[in-house]
């Protein structure tokens, strides 16, 4: 499985941080079905296991609240969402393995396709919310994510200020481009593999 285009940018770390909101609606992560979810998060994306255990207190697969992350394997086109601990009774209720899990048992995760089917390539959607987005966005953008062309173009369009002109280098399909010319890029309907390098200060 290959993306339709690649976009690589070198940006100051603070500017990369402004892309955290991209994760709110989710980004694509190419991977394989059947692998342990923790392998995807920790080995492929480089998230520390301690971070998953302690910081990520709210965890969804396909909109269902997860209690035991260790038992989950990646299913085809899964939507994985990670959040820090949330306020309110509803927040406490959605917390993984929390005392109030019984309050939402009809929407708790109870297994998925990843366990049964033969391994295959897939693109899962990774959503990051709140502090988790703020803390992991730069790292995962450095590893690389996939975003559909029209959505990425729209996202870049609504970023005000000089977020993109901060870019020291920009490469489209490995070819250097002027960072100011991003609007004229031939955005495909399909996936664009986006990668951001932090500019060394």
């Amino acid at each position: 499985m290959e993306p339709d285009a690649t976009l690589t940018m070198e940006l100051p770390p603070a500017t990369i941080g402004r892309f955290a909101a991209l994760f709110g609606q989710g980004v694509g992560i190419p991977t394989r079905t059947g692998i342990p979810l923790l392998a995807l998060l920790c080995d492929q994306l480089g998230i520390a296991r301690d971070y998953i255990d302690q910081r990520v207190q709210t965890f969804f697969i396909n909109g269902r609240a997860v209690d035991q992350v260790e038992q989950i394997r990646v299913g085809d086109r899964d939507v994985i969402a990670l959040s820090a601990a949330m306020p309110g009774l509803a927040g406490a209720t959605l917390r993984k393995g929390g005392m109030f899990a019984g309050f939402r048992q009809t929407i708790s995760y109870a297994g998925g396709s990843g366990q049964e089917k033969a391994p295959q390539q897939t693109v899962v959607t990774l959503k990051l919310f709140n502090l988790v987005a703020r803390e992991l966005a730069a790292q995962i953008l450095h590893t690389g994510v996939w975003v559909k062309g029209p959505r990425l173009a729209e996202y870049l369009q609504q970023l005000d200020g000089n977020a993109l002109t901060d870019s020291v280098t920009m490469k489209w399909n490995d070819q250097p481009r002027d960072p100011g010319s991003w609007e004229r890029l031939p955005w495909p309907e399909g996936w664009v593999a986006l990668r951001m390098e932090p500019l060394r200060e």
């Binding site: 969804f60 306020p87 927040g91 502090l131």
Partner: peptide
Amino acid sequence: HPVTGQGLPAYGTNVLTNVINEAGG
């Protein structure tokens, strides 16, 4: 505490929108 010391001060109570929406509630 991560909720009272970090999450709420950073985003306010509206931090719940994305999460409750993700849960389908």
